[in-house]
Amino acid sequence: MSSLSEEVDMLRRVPLFAQIEPSKLKLLAFTSERLAFDENQDVFRQGDEGDAAYVIMQGSADVVVNTPKGETVVAVLSDNAFIGEIAILCDVPRTATIRAKSDLQTLKIKKEDFLGLVKEFPDMAIEVMRELAARLGKTTAELSQVRQQLSAKGS
């Protein structure tokens, strides 16, 4: 049977939480819920309202996007992946469907719990900002790379 300390270990391996004090992570783990999904069960669906984020504890999941041609798997996530955080940080509908690829163990962090913790511990807010900024930097770099490739093709 899993216990809180196991989950704290897990959380620490999530980049977003890596720098956060273990005691805060323990509180986050305590307020979260362990949730298991069967193979092919949807964790959430594209277009749904986002009420929680999930950390994958065990197993892997497909990121599925609806396209005019039907569903397309755009990525596969596995251990320590943090999913659905965009929808809980800014109120947008889910941008993709997450579907369990195998039996999936997750830790469900509710939106108000996550925001509550961030509000209470500014250190954590800074960590989240730092992580998101890093991601933004990475995405921007990727975007400019794509643009260059496009303009190279176009010319």
């Binding site: 005691s23 323990k26 509180l27 305590f30 307020t31 108000e112 509550g116």
Partner: peptide, 19 residues
């Protein structure tokens, strides 16, 4: 011990206490 450790830093009105 676990409960006090988890909650000692939180202000008393924090909604987590409901959990």
């Amino acid at each position: 011990a676990t409960a006090t450790e988890l909650f000692k830093d939180l202000p008393p009105e924090h909604p987590f206490f409901e959990r």
